[in-house]
Design a protein around this nucleic acid. Structure first.
Lengths: 338, 338
DNA sequence: TTGTATGCGTTATCAT
DNA sequence: ATGATAACGCATACAA
């Protein structure tokens, strides 16, 4: 007999329960049905250990309750956190998540978009770098950190405000001469606004500042020489540094210590992202924290929202400052202020 | 007309190319077909921007090229790395990955197994904690770090050897009196063998050792008092500590420094896992490195292997020691030895 | 209210 | 070699 070897189908359940196929379908989908029928069907389902086949469902309904997430990787802590929170936000809504690691590769990004569409996903969330990414009109797409035209909503932190906040914090903490260090994609994306925000903050608070901006290919060593050049008699000419990411801040702090500069006594450092080495531990440095859970929630909401017409082109979520050991203690700050 | 609004199907392509449905299917699947037909079909596919529907394929073939990964979360660095490498290993084989974050919750673990089976996944890879996880016979399953019976292969690092290696390294580095600190699941899983391996290593190298073992619920502070109790005149009675994970090592190192003990001068610390704060940066501490890429590859290989009969019950992969700043410099070691 | 029949997009088995 | 047709498992419009 067939049903012995293969997984049971609705037909098997119907036969077992002695009812019609449609009745089983209704029971499965919670559509009202005669009490006695329902019981018999439920019993049969348990007996056969029946489970609906999502693929048949998806084919029928052309709705698959699946969303693809395109992200460079899951090892870099910020990405890892994003993946986790988006996964949770989706699972809460009974959606499944197809994870696609793109490794920053434009071709892979395009490939996975195609793959996702073959899979008839209900939507795609993407943190991508390919400036020419082709997306079918009929596949909802939400971008993270990069605007891809008015038809595609973009969700990001308020990077400009974050830059401003960093400048203001450094000013509050007593800095007068600061630097902005940046390395990363030269692509026009949202995180690039951190620079403008920082400049703006420096100007409004009367901080004198300098910038050192590298591109992705450039050697990190350029930062080392930049810093060395600004040391005179063992003293750095900056008393505050804003790094575009916590990752860079981490490296810069190591370099500063190698140069016999104390952090935060000689120079205070603020990063951006809000990375912790492990879950539940302290921040790796003083930092502007991105609201990752909120970003995740917003992406999923926008993606699954029915009325596509009212989708905003850009959503910026508020960031916060957090102490992480590389700026003056918050306590000493209170003393100074009061 | 219909094909204007919905996505094109094979039928649309057939009509466009003026050939039969079956012919299109053959072209799509690379089955030989008359040259002129093939060209016409390919042209029609491009013109309509046709893509095969994986859901219809999956329904027909009851093979979906999808694998589910059950893991507590993707934020903890070790899990994040595992997710990344498993994702790559699957994508290399043209398999898709369904990510399920379980948050260490037994009910969620069971729920996602059921969900995955409904999705007719071709297999499940799981790093789970539910001791009673029910898995359908016909769904291939590979476990990470925990044996779940002889029918389910388990892939793990060689945790016993790792524990041994830690003891041997500490001995090589000049330690004579060491401690083993552990916190974590009391469940019977592979990482628990680190303790036995360490004891074994200590015995064979004549190290005297002490153990402090906490369970998941216990307060971290117990380690602090344990360490405090072992300080006399500002000196710790251990010169080496092996922590069951890098995470714990990280916390312990912070505590040691708070107690005015220098690492590695006063006490050397070795962790386990091989965590880096960011991709491409140095290890967070001296550590026993788990071969994550190899674990990932092995899981995927075992899962997709055809002959289910020859699946080994337990595969242990070799670990390595890596210097990470919390043991004596490898250079000074060479000098000492030579 | 319950049962029956059709179609979702593909693949594969047949005749042609 | 090509084209028609059935079947995969489910949902639903429709008939009973």
């Amino acid at each position: 007999m067939k049903s012995e070897h293969s997984v049971p189908t609705m037909k098997d359940v119907a036969k077992e329960a002695g009812v019609a196929l449609g009745t089983v379908s209704k029971v499965v989908n919670g559509i009202p049905v005669g009490e006695s029928y329902r019981l018999r069907v439920e019993e049969a389902i348990k007996k056969l250990n029946y489970q609906v086949n999502s693929y048949a469902q998806g084919l029928k309904a052309s709705k698959t309750y699946t969303v693809a997430l395109l992200i460079p990787n899951t090892e870099e802590p910020f990405f890892a956190s994003l993946v986790y929170h988006i996964n949770l936000a989706l699972l809460r809504r009974k959606y499944r998540m197809l994870l696609c690691s793109t490794d920053f590769d434009s071709d892979q990004e395009q490939e996975y978009v195609t793959m996702a569409q073959q899979n008839k996903v209900d939507g795609i969330i993407g943190l991508t770098y390919n400036p020419h990414l082709q997306i079918e009109e009929n596949t909802p797409f939400v971008a993270i950190d990069r605007s891809m035209g008015t038809k595609i909503p973009c969700v990001a932190s308020d990077n400009f405000a974050g830059g401003q906040l960093a400048a203001e914090k450094l000013a509050d903490l007593g800095c007068t001469n600061v630097a902005f260090l940046r390395i990363g994609s030269s692509l026009d994306n949202e995180p690039n606004k951190r620079k403008a925000g920082f400049e703006n903050g420096c100007l409004s608070r009367g901080l004198s500042y300098e910038m050192k901006i590298l591109n992705d290919g450039d050697a990190y060593e350029e930062f080392e020489s930049f810093l060395s050049e600004h040391i005179q008699d063992g003293k750095l000419s900056f008393d505050g540094i804003f790094c575009v990411t916590d990752r860079l801040a981490y490296l810069i702090i190591k370099t500063l210590r190698k140069l016999n500069l104390r952090v935060p006594e000689d120079v205070q450092v603020i990063g951006f992202d809000g990375i912790r080495p492990f879950q539940g531990t302290e921040y790796i440095c003083s930092t502007i924290v991105q609201p990752v859970p909120e970003i995740a929630e917003m992406c999923v909401n926008l993606l699954l929202q029915e009325n596509l017409s009212s989708k905003p082109p850009l959503v910026c979520l508020p960031v916060t400052y957090a102490y992480g050991g590389t700026t003056r203690e918050p306590d000493s700050l209170f003393i100074r202020i009061s």
